[in-house]
Design a protein around this nucleic acid. Structure first.
Lengths: 207, 207
DNA sequence: ACTGCTATGTTGACACTGTAGACAATGCAC
DNA sequence: GTGCATTGTCTACAGTGTCAACATAGCAGT
């Protein structure tokens, strides 16, 4: 098992795993090329065979985090209630709360998941790799909003672009709660504020 | 003028100014201790006479940016309309849009202004210096919300903690628009989405 | 089965960063 | 003027990302 072969076998995956470890506490800044390779037991430059850049590795880690996030945001199985509209609203609410709760539970990962500010803007679009608009958590939001329309709880006019107010609210709240003035508040209180925020943005969508 | 005296005279201020220059494009990552001192024409370690740390300098820059932000968010002078409630709502709306517009106009500065993720959390509260809750832009938000209550446009119950949904929405939108999937959208479209976001969160406050 | 190519990992080096400690110049208080 | 606290410099160290040249391993084709 621990025979050190010259070829690692699956370095790329191993580096991403190391990246997950490092970013979990410490966020993006904690992911160093040298540190990651050190953990895997490989020379620093080996990483360059799999990633063009430190930022490329970070991007790969980010995509994995997005998947983890979507898994944790599992929807609470639509209880067979009669009120479709109410249920759709509840689902959207759950998606929002799931987003925030993941952020609170894994602040380091969350800081990496979407658009890491540490490096400057990625120069070009395809720099980090994937379009953030098809990040799994985002798709969940889209789905929930569509369901809201289908249930008649949201006008078709108001549907257009509704993703952004929603995402804005939960994303902003997460940032405030992790790095901002809300940091350190007791979980219960935090959850109450999150609930208020999510409820408010959903309620305000109609107008 | 350009006589190089041994003592710079006002190094601290000069370093902060250099920091403003550096962060303006490039955000927090662009503020290097060595680079800043180089610009001022002073040895790297001179900075340590005025700041304990690179992060301390960054904090000083952040506070200056917050002031700049508040200046740019100048309220549009309450037009003497008869409808108090409508006017209060408009003021709150203007504060939110001002926040976002500053962020869009000065993305580098905005990234530094509040809670720079680059470094990890500041270890202790008083690390960066001031409580983010009395950042000038935040005070403007508080004021606008109070005015809303005074005008009868917001129940006293709903007033409590209303800062956070509001701040969350605009802050999140700014992040999405700068680093996120909204990046690069034409200004006009961006402004429309911002408007929608701000309107939504205000409309949703009552519930 | 041997040969050669390509993918993968290593070594050494460079320029850069933040930070620490010992030293030098300055300007203010007496 | 003298002495001292403030402010800036120099040297040095550990750490980083990245590049170029080299070494090894495994696979393809004869």
């Amino acid at each position: 098992m621990s025979e050190r072969r010259y070829h690692h076998g699956n370095l790329r995956a191993a580096l991403v795993d190391a990246g997950l470890d490092l970013t979990r506490d410490g966020g993006a800044a904690a992911l160093g090329l040298r540190e990651a390779t050190r953990r895997v037991g490989v020379s620093p430059n080996a990483a360059y065979r799999h990633f063009s850049d430190r930022r490329a590795l970070l991007g790969a880690v980010a995509r994995r985090v997005q998947e983890l996030m979507a898994e944790r945001m599992a929807v609470p199985a639509p209880t067979s209630s009669d009120d479709d509209a109410q249920q759709a609203r509840a689902q959207l609410h759950a998606v929002g709360m799931g987003y925030i709760e993941f952020a609170l539970a894994e602040p380091g990962w969350f800081a990496v998941a979407f658009f890491p500010s540490p490096g400057d803007q990625p120069d070009d679009d395809e720099g980090t790799g994937t379009d953030p608009a098809d990040a799994p958590p985002f798709r969940m939001l889209v789905q929930a909003l569509d369901a809201l329309v289908a249930a008649g709880a949201l006008e078709a006019d108001a549907r257009q672009g509704a993703e952004w107010p929603c995402w804005s609210a939960v994303h902003g709240f997460a940032d405030l709660a992790i790095h901002g003035p809300l940091r350190g508040l007791p979980t219960e209180q935090l959850r109450a504020l999150a609930d208020r925020t999510v409820s408010a943005i959903i309620a305000g969508l109609g107008g």
